[in-house]
């Protein structure tokens, strides 16, 4: 889980200042090799505000008092790439693990937290899978969070473009769970209702209340510096039950990152809290 050196504030006036803003607000660092993207991502905002350059934006950020401009900037810079059924096999395993747990403790309502859920495809995919296994709202609670207010607003609306709906989602599931509206596809309320979306910053906000059976934190930690990553693992561990499971992205691992979690033999690729951490 390492990436090329991050942009440092000293790296260059405006770009450095904006990278620092992003890191301060979300913990996310921008790899120096991707710094050029920053200007591309912000171009529409610059144009909309009539700014000629990033320097103008940085000046406006310095003068702004309500933080709204900073929030817009951060939203544009966060990598929110996601899709339905991203890594299908992992999500299937998550559903299997939850089904097994439900069978072992039938009376208990299980709880799942999708952290860094972006525009909602991850928790909605899980909700579909769980329904298909007969695990409805009485069996499992789903909470999904993201630092980006814009992403959470979109997730709550459950509205997806034709491109988004076709990425990873089978036509049968699309027909079962979505309705078409012009060129968009909108999640049916029975699906959308399954997920409680809220805004939460993994770095600076407490975890959603209560204890979870399973937490997903997929493709979020990648651009955190290692100390922030360690602190986030700590927070995730604190949100899990003693026997809770952690799910990371396909290219991510806890190994060498934290002592709080270890791979679980029962579910390949999933992690449990280590005994020492309890």
């Amino acid at each position: 889980m390492s990436h090329s050196a991050p942009v440092r504030p000293a790296a260059g006036g405006a770009i450095g200042a904006i990278a620092a803003l992003l890191e301060h607000r979300t913990g996310q660092q921008i790899a120096a090799s991707r710094a050029w993207r920053l200007e591309t991502s912000l171009k529409p905002l610059l144009r909309g505000l009539g700014f000629a350059s990033l320097d103008d934006l940085v000046a406006a950020l310095a003068m702004s008092t309500d933080g709204r401009l900073a929030e817009q900037v951060v939203d544009l810079l966060l990598n929110q790439e996601t899709s339905f059924f991203r890594d299908t096999l992992v999500l299937e395993m998550v559903a299997d693990a939850i089904a097994a747990r439900r069978a072992a403790t039938p009376g208990r309502r299980l709880r799942i937290w999708s952290s860094g859920c972006s525009t909602g495809q991850e928790p909605l995919s899980l909700a579909m899978l769980l329904e298909e296994r007969g695990l409805g709202p009485n069996a499992v609670d789903l909470v999904a969070t993201d630092v980006s207010g814009a992403a959470i607003t979109r997730a709550r609306a459950g509205r997806f473009s034709q491109f988004e709906i076709q990425r990873g989602l089978s036509v049968l599931r699309m027909m079962r769970w979505f309705e078409s509206d012009d060129f968009d596809w909108v999640a049916r309320s029975e699906l959308l209702r399954r997920v409680q979306f809220r805004r939460q910053n993994l770095v600076s906000d407490p975890a959603p209340p209560g204890q979870f059976d399973l937490v997903l934190c997929r493709n979020v930690l990648l651009y955190f510096p290692s100390d922030v990553r360690r602190a986030v693992f700590e927070r995730l561990a604190g949100a899990l039950r003693d026997d809770g499971l952690l799910v990371l992205g396909a290219g991510e691992t806890v190994i060498g990152q934290t002592g709080r979690f270890a791979p679980t033999p029962a579910w390949r690729g999933l992690y449990t809290r280590t005994p020492a951490a309890r």
């Binding site: 899709s83 491109f163 076709q166 990425r167 990873g168």
Partner: peptide, 22 residues
């Protein structure tokens, strides 16, 4: 289309990701 026996459905315009995932 599904009732007639199609296995999947792509709405144009499509891109590489769409096609690959279907």
């Amino acid at each position: 289309a599904i009732e007639a026996g199609a296995d999947e459905y792509v709405m144009k315009p499509f891109d590489r990701e769409t096609l690959e995932s279907k």
